[in-house]
Simulated assay, not measured.
Amino acid sequence: MQIWEIIKAAILGIIEGITEWLPISSTGHMILADEFIRLNVSDAFKEMFFVVIQLGAILAVLVLYFHKLNPFSPKKSAGEKKETFSLWGKVIVACIPAAVIGLLFDEKIDELFYNYITVAITLILYGVLFIVIENRNKSRAPKVNALADLSYQTALFIGMFQVLSLIPGTSRSGATILGAILIGTSRYVAAEFTFFLAIPVMFGASLLKIVKFGFDFSGSEIAILLTGMVVAFAVSVFAIKFLMGYIKKHDFKAFGWYRIALGVIVVGYFLLKQFVF
């Protein structure tokens, strides 16, 4: 029995590692995955697992961008170190809106919106928006082509878009990338800044879930959690590299079409389950 739970955790880690960084909603995929890959654990542990597993994904960002994010690197000049501190300042500013709203209304948001109808609607809605905005931007040159050119005001605006991702199915990366592109950043800058925003957001969310759950884990729960995190880390490395390579030559419309298709599948599956089974 234990080995099957480890295998399930590994599969969920793969799903998390891919969907956390691509703008296709990790929550939407996890809701579907939970229908077919049911962990034999308590509801409280499962709720915590689906959040804390993201720590593995975050470690991938820290590893891949360690030099860029490290303001104390001896390989950086004084100016580069100052620029790195400034980048962290912008990340913190951008995290404030979602942190405030999340802390105040996290349980209420889950109570009202954590259901397949909301997830399906947001999957389709933001899928359409990706297609519309990319078509709109075809003839427009981005105003911000480097992270150093990103102002604190622009960072705050992107952070406001991140608030939308508190609604399940929106996709944190999807909301912030769309917002960043709308206000004039390049796709590459939008994606990178989204990765960096995830660091404090996910660490904070994971810490809250662990504190809420408590630190009294059984041996099997620790094994399941660590498996999910390690696999999510390894898969995230490849997912991030893929996305950054992909957007050098392509736009985000393919992800928009994928979201629409997934939203339709979510609606179809749960309606079928409700009326047939």
Results as ranks from 00 to 15, higher is better:
residue 70 N to A: 00
residue 77 S to N: 00
residue 47 E to Q: 12
residue 33 A to P: 02
residue 35 E to Y: 04
residue 58 I to V: 06
residue 173 S to E: 05
residue 148 A to Y: 11
residue 220 S to Q: 12
residue 21 W to Q: 02
residue 256 G to F: 14
residue 43 D to N: 08
residue 144 V to R: 09
residue 177 I to Y: 14
residue 169 G to I: 01
residue 204 G to N: 11
residue 83 E to I: 07
residue 262 L to D: 06
residue 181 I to D: 04
residue 249 K to Q: 11
residue 75 K to W: 14
residue 257 W to T: 05
residue 177 I to V: 12
residue 14 I to M: 13
residue 160 M to C: 15
residue 150 L to G: 00
residue 140 R to N: 07
residue 260 I to W: 11
residue 219 G to S: 12
residue 64 L to H: 07
residue 13 G to A: 09
residue 210 I to A: 06
residue 153 Q to G: 13
residue 101 I to D: 02
residue 259 R to Q: 02
residue 165 S to K: 06
residue 188 Y to S: 05
residue 76 K to T: 01
residue 260 I to K: 09
residue 238 F to T: 06
residue 45 F to W: 12
residue 265 I to V: 15
residue 215 F to G: 03
residue 170 T to P: 13
residue 211 V to Q: 13
residue 59 L to P: 09
residue 181 I to Y: 14
residue 259 R to G: 06
residue 53 I to N: 02
residue 255 F to I: 02
residue 270 F to Q: 03
residue 83 E to S: 08
residue 218 S to F: 13
residue 228 G to D: 12
residue 240 I to Y: 07
residue 271 L to K: 03
residue 223 A to Q: 11
residue 245 G to K: 13
residue 225 L to W: 15
residue 8 K to W: 08
residue 74 P to Q: 12
residue 223 A to E: 09
residue 40 N to C: 09
residue 78 A to Y: 09
residue 88 W to F: 08
residue 158 I to V: 07
residue 125 L to S: 00
residue 146 A to H: 15
residue 191 A to C: 09
residue 201 V to D: 01
residue 106 D to L: 04
residue 126 Y to A: 08
residue 238 F to I: 13
residue 157 F to S: 06
residue 134 E to Y: 07
residue 124 I to H: 02
residue 170 T to F: 14
residue 202 M to Q: 03
residue 146 A to K: 11
residue 243 L to T: 00
residue 125 L to M: 10
residue 228 G to C: 10
residue 153 Q to E: 13
residue 98 A to G: 02
residue 258 Y to F: 09
residue 143 K to D: 11
residue 203 F to V: 04
residue 119 V to H: 07
residue 61 V to T: 05
residue 253 K to G: 03
residue 145 N to R: 14
residue 71 P to F: 04
residue 242 F to D: 05
residue 74 P to I: 14
residue 182 L to D: 01
residue 189 V to E: 14
residue 133 I to M: 15
residue 155 A to Y: 03
residue 92 I to T: 08
residue 129 L to W: 10
residue 274 Q to D: 11
residue 221 E to L: 12
